[in-house]
Computed example of a mutant assay.
Amino acid sequence: MAQQPQQRPILNRPISLLNRNGLLLLLLLALFVILGVFLPLTKSPLFLFPNTTTSSSLPAPSSSLPSISDWRDYSLAQAAKFVAKNETVIVCAVSYPFLPFLSNWLISISRQKHHEKVLVIAEDYATLYKVNEKWPGHAVLIPPALDPQSAHKFGSQGFYNLTSRRPQHLLNILELGYNVMYNDVDMVWLQDPFDYLQGSHDVYFMDDMIAVKPMNHSHDLPPLSPSGVTYVCSCMIFLRSTDGAKLLMKKWVEEIQAQRWSNTEAKKPHDQPAFNRALHKTAHQVDAYLLPQSAFPSGGLYFRNETWVNETKGKHVIVHNNYIIGYDKKMKRFKDFNLWLLDDHALESPLGILKIYQEQQNTTEGKNRRKTGRKQRRNRGKKQKLP
């Protein structure tokens, strides 16, 4: 029988670069080298948070989201750079219970094609993680984090702590070189407000008066009333990145610091009177512009003056749900005026369907059922006592 040729041991065989397995091994080694060298050097926010902000796109899979430490380290400069479009950022400040109002506001903004430039300043870590889970890169937290339950109750120290930080946030963004629009989230956009920001003024703002003004009213800063106050609203402000706007924000910070919240005061201060004082103290240095009342009405006017609303129909741009206190009351008033979009159009929001809102609705419905049940039992008891 012919003797079989002796095979070399596998370990002694030469590896040819042309061999398929050898080439694959070489490519894998090259890939590991590239990742090992360049991946740690990549610090761009575009790399950390892939832009998935179109209203039709789905949230990124949880496995591809940054870790908690990434969200904590995400700076205001990174966040502003990520969302800014045409050197402009739209900012709001939100605590966790107000996420449904945030989502409702975002729906109205997305209809005007401006949601991509929205930056949510999260006042607590629950808001930071929820927004970035649903909409990566669009929320940032500027320490210290606040108590999410107390920060949304009007008149509370938590609410004051939230609103009093606003001018410093806006000043920081201006100093980064961006124009900034601030909105409260109990607002709804009906038209594009940027069409009304004509000229090159330092600051644009809304009137908070409920009295009807002439259609051709002055756009200058309203004069002081006999009591020494004006009613300019700090709920909607647009600031250009100018020296005048920065001066105004610095003066606003000073006015807030001069009148801190106190448990002993009968009337609790908040940020709006300080904003009005800052406007008047910088009037000769800041170019201010009062937006038309017909386009930017206060809630006290829009929701209470049916005649005026009908006369100015089609002109409304941003409606603010103010002049009413209470989370449930605000939501009900939006629903009564067909401005609560979240029930039927949640998928138009970058945040999608929110579990927190569903839980709130279930809790409210449960309370209403129990209240109705108690009322029915009382009525039955009264009928039984009748002779």
Results as ranks from 00 to 15, higher is better:
Ser156Ile: 04
Ser156Glu: 04
Gly158Cys: 05
Gly158Thr: 05
Gly158Asp: 05
Gly158Phe: 02
Phe159Glu: 08
Phe159Trp: 14
Tyr160Met: 03
Leu162Glu: 03
Leu162Thr: 02
Thr163Cys: 11
Thr163Ser: 10
Arg165Ile: 04
Arg165Ala: 08
Arg165Pro: 07
Arg165Glu: 01
Arg166Glu: 08
Arg166Ile: 01
Pro167Met: 02
Pro167His: 01
Pro167Ser: 06
Pro167Glu: 05
Pro167Gly: 00
Gln168Thr: 14
Gln168Met: 13
Gln168Val: 05
Gln168Glu: 12
Gln168Cys: 06
Gln168Ile: 06
His169Val: 03
His169Gly: 08
Leu170Phe: 00
Leu170Gly: 04
Leu170Glu: 03
Leu171His: 10
Leu171Asn: 05
Leu171Lys: 06
Asn172Ile: 01
Asn172Pro: 11
Asn172His: 12
Ile173Gln: 03
Ile173Thr: 02
Ile173Val: 12
Ile173Tyr: 01
Leu174Val: 01
Leu174Tyr: 00
Glu175Gly: 08
Leu176Gln: 00
Leu176Tyr: 00
Leu176Ser: 04
Gly177Leu: 03
Tyr178Val: 00
Tyr178Pro: 03
Asn179Ala: 08
Asn179Ile: 11
Asn179Ser: 14
Val180Pro: 01
Val180Leu: 00
Met181Cys: 11
Met181Ile: 14
Met181Leu: 15
Tyr182Thr: 03
Tyr182Cys: 08
Tyr182Leu: 13
Asn183Cys: 14
Asn183Leu: 11
Val185Ile: 13
Asp186Gly: 06
Asp186Glu: 08
Asp186Ala: 10
Val188Cys: 04
Trp189Asp: 09
Gln191Leu: 03
Gln191Tyr: 12
Asp192Val: 05
Asp192Arg: 08
Pro193Cys: 07
Pro193Asn: 09
Pro193Arg: 00
Pro193Leu: 01
Phe194Val: 04
Phe194Leu: 10
Asp195Glu: 13
Asp195Ala: 14
Asp195Cys: 13
Tyr196Pro: 05
Tyr196Glu: 11
Leu197Lys: 05
Leu197Asp: 06
Leu197Ala: 07
Gln198His: 15
Gly199Leu: 04
Ser200Leu: 11
His201Phe: 11
Asp202Ala: 10
Val203Asn: 00
Tyr204Ser: 00
Phe205Ile: 03
Phe205Ser: 04
Met206Trp: 10
Asp207Tyr: 11
Asp207His: 14
Asp207Ala: 15
Asp208Arg: 01
Asp208Phe: 13
Ile210Lys: 14
Val212Asp: 10
Lys213Arg: 14
Lys213Val: 07
Lys213Asn: 13
Pro214Asn: 08
Met215Gln: 15
Met215Lys: 14
Asn216Ser: 13
His217Arg: 12
Ser218Pro: 05
His219Cys: 15
His219Met: 14
His219Gly: 15
Asp220Pro: 15
Asp220Val: 15
Asp220Trp: 12
Asp220Ala: 12
Asp220Thr: 15
Leu221Arg: 09
Leu221Glu: 06
Pro222Arg: 05
